[in-house]
Design a protein around this nucleic acid. Structure first.
Lengths: 251, 251
DNA sequence: AAGAAAAATTGGCCTTACCACTTGACCTCC
DNA sequence: GGAGGTCAAGTGGTAAGGCCAATTTTTCTT
């Protein structure tokens, strides 16, 4: 049995965690100066060196900023990226995916094997079931596209595709957008997930036929259609907001 | 005027850097136990708490492992990952680039402006001069390709291209390969850098003509040719090695 | 009221000291 | 002679107190 390396959490880690929790819960607000090392040492019942060590850990984690002689100040959480690291917008992302994943599909068509084709069909069936149940198809969707990317037998290509999905996962803006659109779809009982499943079938067939050009076009068409759906949903969202506003005005 | 926050590097940072340097230079080898905190405090002329702070910093950086009561041991540097993160091979990378940068060129052809075209021509002239001088053209080369990627006005696309170049920069295998090939080229007085410059000119002209298809094909042809050159150089390298081996045998 | 000097506060660093744990040598016992 | 236990030296972990330099705040002067 694996030997559990008995947890010997050192004090400074406890202190650092405690402080992080206090920051997270808003006890210490962003930009604020937190108590002096001496005060913290008294209130946390530890010595000052321990507090200092915790501070260094927090500083290295970019959670606080230490200014000699002034105090330590809590930094803003890394969630707020201004402009450069804000990541691409949804439409930018889908455009890039259409091009890159299109090429990936073309490459994959020449190299995919039966095992991967079966995995593709299975992932798509799973997605179909989720779409029937009006559940989130995101994971199965990602699975499908990643199998295609890996079928290129080119790790650089697979990494590029993976990165694009990472953008999506990490983008807070996308989270909110996706959720509202999802809600709108549900309210209007309009699901394009089944359409996506059909797109995936078409892609799979082109891959099975070793039709590079066909696979590329099918993948491109799929993602361009998703982009179109996203655009339409965005417009519907605006309409819904207008509608709500009108109701609000009439009351 | 902007206040330069006078570099108040704290002591523990100096100590941590110093230790990192000693580890990098092999003074402290991987897995070894480095001197006790007390010894280091004496030899580095600082107090033990400072040493401890530096140790915590190194521990957080995953450079060392601290075992209470035993000592601190240097971890293996994260640079040597065996298989998973070894990155794509040179030919894989060039294939992915041919597809992805080809698409980037096609997109860029529709959106590039005069400023970027001028920047492209300038980067290419710089590269030409470097090629004349038999100097390294790598930086100018990267500059050229990144301008094209950014001209897509799609940050996801630009990020994908950037990532591919990052692979190249971070790959130790590539470093060695590139250097030996460079040497072989020099020995045989064979430079394909000028050919690359011509390729770049062709790409630039297609972009200037807003010819998406032409730009895509030019970019693809360029990178496929580089791949071919790399292949040829690899074979020459083997020949040269054989030659050296024969000489060695005859002596 | 504005500016300058002084006092209080704060982080940076040092010193000393004690504790718990690991380690390895030594010793006993079979 | 080998297996086991014992124990002391060494190590990191933590505490307490003190001084210094930089910063901030207060106070006093003009």
């Amino acid at each position: 049995m694996p030997v559990e390396p008995i947890k010997v959490r050192r004090l400074y880690q406890e202190v650092a965690d405690q402080l992080l929790r206090l920051i997270a819960t808003g006890e210490f607000k962003v930009g604020e100066r937190l108590p002096s090392e001496r005060e913290l040492a008294v209130s946390l019942q530890v010595s000052r060196p321990t507090i200092r060590e915790a501070m260094i850990a927090l500083e290295l984690a970019a959670a606080v900023q230490i200014r000699s002689g002034a105090g330590v100040f809590v930094c803003e959480p890394p969630s707020q990226q201004s402009t450069a690291d804000a990541g691409p917008g949804p439409f930018e992302l889908l455009e890039a995916r259409a091009h890159i994943e299109g090429e990936a599909a073309a490459l994959a068509a020449q190299r995919i094997d039966e095992v991967e084709l079966r995995a593709l069909r299975k992932a798509n069936e799973t997605m179909n079931g989720l779409a029937d149940a009006r559940a989130s198809t995101e994971e199965a969707d990602r699975e499908f596209h990643q199998i295609v990317a890996r079928a290129t037998r080119n790790s650089a290509m697979a990494a590029a595709v993976e990165q694009l999905w990472e953008f999506r996962a990490r983008m807070p803006m996308w989270q909110g957008l996706h959720e509202t659109i999802r809600e709108i779809k549900k309210r209007r009982d309009w699901s394009d997930d089944h359409h996506a499943v059909l797109d995936h079938r078409e892609i799979t067939e082109a891959l099975a036929a070793r039709d590079a050009g066909g696979a590329r076009e099918a993948m491109r068409a799929h993602l361009e259609r998703v982009s179109g759906v996203l655009l339409a949903a965005s417009e519907l969202k605006i309409l819904d907001l207008d509608h709500q506003f009108e109701n609000l005005s009439q009351e």
